[in-house]
Amino acid sequence: MGSLRIAHRLEGLPPYVPGRRPEAGETRRQARLASNEVPWPPQAAIVDAMKDALEHAHRYPDMQYAELRDAIAAHVGRPSDRIAVANGSTALLRDIVGVLVEAGSEVIFAEPSFPYYRTAAIANSAVPIAVPLLAYAHDLDAMRGAITPRTRVVIICNPNNPTGTAYTNAELKEFLARVPEDVAVILDEAYVEFARDVNGLELMDDHPNVIVVRTLSKAHGLAGLRVGYAIGDSEVMSYVSRLGVPFRIDGVAVAGALAALTPEQVAESRRRVASIVEERAVLTTALRSRGWNVVESAANFVFLPLGESTASVAAECAAGGVLVRPIGGGIRVTVGSPQDTEHLLGALPVLANEPPR
């Protein structure tokens, strides 16, 4: 690379590895269960709104995203000045950390969890502190014990990606009561719509240091649009918006998001979520009946701990036309359609799972 030098803090930074996509030229049916996408395309009204927006593609969108933030405010029942938006919740996680840390500050998160938390810390010159999961869930006691005077942010993925475990509000209240008020607790709720008794918004009044991050990619089925939002302290959200790249969400994505947040489309999304939750139960029961160890999930995926068998089982699934995600010592399998479930069950090899713990 010549004489250019990479910043020392980035040395060895692993790239983000997405779920596998079908290879170019693959023509057989693929069950795409590696990226936690919903199995349906956007509703017709959302597509129509995006098509209409294309006629104005020569214009910049409103950089403050006032209409979108107002729509999200109405959707979540919080004032719009407490909301920031970005091209995906991942960008928000990076910028929230950037607003809150100084060089050398600590960011605590669980592992295995969403891999980008480590990147968000390092990109902002903070020190990543990974706390191992306990029984596939966040070890809240250990995370509290990891807090030092240098800690500025704790991130909790709830439900957790990739294991699917979730904490109820009652359980999180006990944890939050033990966290210093000047330490931000980011609740990454990308999969909250698929869970029960999980809603970080209800914790914010008693705990102003809580920031909730959500997305339209999962339950609303807009993964290709990349629209995420955060709810938190108004001053923090103001700085998050300032730190973000100008015009970070394109006008077509804004139009799709606004259409998705209308009452009619939200109702349809909830119906789709309910069907995924039902299929999750069907898939879990079917896998367990075949002897597989499946972690109880509150998300739109299930996790099978496999240890050393992870890569070989994922490869056998791929050979059978089912794309799953090897991660965190197991495979994460998106809950798709009933046809996807049948395809997966047909592709899974002979039992190769670790015994239940």
Rank of each mutant, 00 (worst) to 15 (best):
A299I: 01
E279H: 15
V127I: 13
I72K: 01
R178V: 10
L33D: 10
L344E: 07
T119G: 02
V127D: 02
D48M: 12
E316T: 08
G329C: 11
D70C: 03
K173N: 12
D62N: 14
P15G: 10
E37Y: 13
A318Q: 14
R196K: 11
S125P: 03
A103H: 06
V38K: 01
T119F: 07
A314S: 12
P42Q: 11
E278M: 09
G25K: 10
R357L: 14
Q64P: 01
G244L: 07
E23C: 09
A319V: 04
S35H: 03
R288G: 02
T262L: 09
A177M: 13
N87Q: 12
V101L: 07
K173I: 11
F194I: 06
V210T: 03
R118E: 03
A34C: 09
G256P: 06
A120C: 12
T163V: 07
S269C: 11
G291T: 11
R82P: 02
L306W: 11
S234G: 10
R271F: 12
S125D: 14
I147C: 01
L187A: 03
N161P: 03
R248T: 12
N353L: 08
R226K: 13
P132E: 01
I231A: 03
T163Q: 09
T165E: 06
V179F: 04
G104Y: 05
D81N: 14
